[in-house]
Design a protein around this nucleic acid. Structure first.
Lengths: 252, 252
DNA sequence: ATCATAGTCGTCTGCCTGACGATAAACACT
DNA sequence: AGTGTTTATCGTCAGGCAGACGACTATGAT
């Protein structure tokens, strides 16, 4: 049976983004307000259709730039700064996940340092950083005075999967540095782990672990006192991407 | 802008399967011969179009059953036997990965115990279990006398990603039991690890590790001598899915 | 009977981690 | 200037786990 367009059903393919950052000691995700049905007025993950001539990673990078202005960090250019980490997360394709038509969404996970205010088409009221616990709660929350509502479509599930991916991946990779500015202290990195995992870590053991793992951190020579207290050494992310042995998440 | 079918390009969506098993001490993948262009006559991963009314996991399970006769093991029915493990792997959507049209393929990873001969539409010459190193080699191999050729489309990449997923996932989960029959010995489980990782493991340390991890193995009371030597205790897979601490792959 | 094979139990040593004491270097008060 | 607070950093110690490897057991093959 040769190529026959009628032999398969047509799908729309989108990319949705779980964009995570750490703000004020808590893990936050980017949410945008839907301006059109279905789920008009509800919060959702940013995303959009994949264009005819781009691959999935390009589509995700484009959407990320449109929503946040972030460039994607290219692993081939390790000196590049301020780039976000972007990776494919999973694909969601239940019939009926979009009431309009059959849509398959290839979700991506992006990790970014703390950013200035988000923008969605320049309209700040239609985009926000929200703590993930807030977005994941069954009831959901709106902004001040808005009715609580969960995220549109199956985006609560996608967000949960993205958060779990981030939580487990910083255990055995140096990915947590993607949440940090180009130069950072051990304490700032520890606060990233604490925010992502929602636990408190011992500063002394954490310091020993991260400075003792070859290739994880590279001292830049500078120091900073922006956190108060004794000045701390500044580091850049080293070349190592896999931590062996891993940094173990404390039990329960 | 309301729903407008012309606003997005139409895609075909397929599922492709990386089906892995362990045969004769080596990790093997299922390959099927393509009967039509493009890549006619070349080996490829099994797969097919997602139907209008099924979700992605259903489509993958259906393809798996069509190609191998395997049922998917439902985690909700732990007593079920002979079921394969199935999980989503990643999605591949480069424009041009299929010369006919824009196809997005949601690859799935299936792990199965050693099986009788494969069947592809009943024709055994069009399906085979091939060692993964053979399929992944740049040049590729055909069967006896056939010209070497790599897998069709981007299936070499998909297979490589699936193999790497399996290799890393048996480190920290009990997934290796999916390669074993319902009842198995510690030695058989060790040979699974050795085949998947391509290394030799110390039988004594391995025995201590797996029998000492609570919930990993449950003794059935029986013994077997099918491997020769002293009779070995038989086990079933226990309920634990996450191994903590993990089983570490030896370096290099 | 002897050997080969595979399974199972122990021992020892070194590494890593968690718990936690102690010191250092900044800033904010008074 | 002194005192307290905050954060960073170094050190110590005990317990757990993994790698290396010795020893013994129970089967089938010769």
């Amino acid at each position: 049976m040769p190529y026959d367009p009628s032999a398969f059903p047509p799908f729309a393919v989108t990319v949705d983004l779980v964009v995570l950052t750490v703000r004020r000691h808590s893990l936050c995700a980017l949410a945008v307000r839907r301006g059109e049905p279905p789920f008009q007025g509800r919060w959702a993950l940013p995303g959009g259709f994949v264009r005819d001539d781009e691959d999935l990673a390009q589509a995700a990078a484009r959407e990320l730039a449109e929503e946040t202005g972030l460039c994607v960090h290219d692993p081939a250019v390790p000196a590049q700064d301020n780039g976000a980490h972007l990776e494919q997360l999973a694909t969601y394709g239940d019939p009926g996940r979009d009431p309009r038509m059959r849509v398959v969404s290839v979700a991506h996970l992006a990790l970014a340092p703390d950013l200035p205010a988000p923008r969605a088409g320049g309209d700040a009221s239609n985009a926000r950083w929200a703590p993930v616990e807030e977005l994941l709660e069954q009831a959901g929350y709106g902004r001040e005075g808005e009715p609580p509502a969960p995220l549109a479509f199956d985006h609560t599930q996608i967000l949960a999967d993205g958060v779990e991916r981030a939580r487990s991946k910083i255990e055995y990779s140096s990915l947590a540095t993607a949440f940090c500015p180009p130069e950072f202290t051990v304490g700032e990195l520890r606060r990233v782990y604490e925010a992502v995992w929602g636990v408190a870590l011992d500063p002394r053991n954490f310091h020993r672990k991260v400075t003792g793992t070859p290739g994880f951190l590279v001292p830049t020579g500078g120091t900073t006192t922006r956190q108060g207290g004794r000045p701390a050494q500044l580091f850049r992310a080293g070349g190592a991407t896999l931590l062996n042995p891993p940094m173990l998440r404390p039990e329960v």
